[in-house]
Design a protein around this nucleic acid. Structure first.
Lengths: 167, 167
DNA sequence: CGGTATCCAAGTCGATACTG
DNA sequence: CAGTATCGACTTGGATACCG
């Protein structure tokens, strides 16, 4: 059995993942069913059978988008730096073309992940900052990020075994 | 401040997410720094400042490879049903073409997410089942599913506002 | 049954040029 | 400064036909 506890604080975020329950101090234990209901927590859709097709569609859409590296990287720099201007984001997100920067920022704005503020001055000044929704998405993906970082070696090893067996 | 506790059990999985700390019972609190070190927990790379660009590149590649819609859907049906044959997966994952099924299964096998077992009989019988790595990935994505389910309405509302303002 | 191989349509993305 | 417009290379994925 595994227990994961995720702590979010203003500005920082920590995740404790894939620890054996026996490795944890007594003070950290899974919620029992009654507590779970009391605080309005819900089960993971992945393991409770059929999922609302709307949710499934959205998740797939979302994954398709965040899987694209630009959204993730923009989310990351905005989460780290707070409010940023167009060109600054372009410099911080290395390798992004102007087209993709514009396109990705628009999509993220449309989805309510960030706020775009246009200051009516010359030269134009446009600032971007994450909404609460954007910050919470970044938090939700934390687990995936951790998984990827933690299992990088295992995956590369698996690939090597696979490729060797093929040759 | 938000606290999330994730519990994983054999066969089922539950996630408690985005609860205000004040809504939680006293028994559930974030780990303190000492405990964190003691159990070898690590911080989320997203919030600990600059990440090694090589690691970042690899992680992005991993997420991009692992997070396309077919991988997620196959992961889901295998997690729910256990061991499955090729054609059965094709039926359970609605809309997938044979090409993409083959391609995705191969990639997942290469990455060590699933085991492919060929039974040398006629007609051929090939079975697929998730590895521990595959199961843990499905667990890691739990938070994203929860986020999408919880924020579906907010995103659709944001889109409507955005699109209306554009017209 | 469980695949490969091939073709083709649609989409993605970078580069470049231009604008208020 | 912060975009828009356009073009062309490249990638993706479905459909179809065939194979051990």
């Amino acid at each position: 059995m595994y227990v994961t506890a995720l702590q979010l604080e203003e500005g920082t975020r920590k995740i404790y993942t894939h620890l054996m329950e026996s490795d944890l101090p007594q003070s950290i234990r899974p919620l029992d069913t009654a507590t779970m209901e009391a605080v309005g927590a819900s089960s993971c859709p992945l393991s409770t059978g059929p999922v609302d097709p709307r949710v499934e569609r959205l998740v797939n859409e979302l994954i398709g988008r965040v899987a694209d590296k630009w959204t993730m990287l923009i989310l990351e720099v905005l989460e780290e730096h707070g409010e940023l201007r167009f060109t600054r984001i372009g410099k911080l997100v290395e390798g992004i073309s102007q087209k993709m920067l514009t396109q990705t920022l628009r999509q993220m704005e449309r989805d309510g992940l960030l706020i775009r503020t246009v200051h009516p001055v010359i030269p134009p000044r446009v600032e971007y900052r994450l909404t609460d929704l954007g910050n919470s998405l970044s938090a939700a993906f934390c687990g995936v990020w951790m998984w990827a970082a933690a299992n990088l070696d295992r995956i590369e090893a698996a690939r090597e075994v696979f490729d060797t067996g093929r040759r």
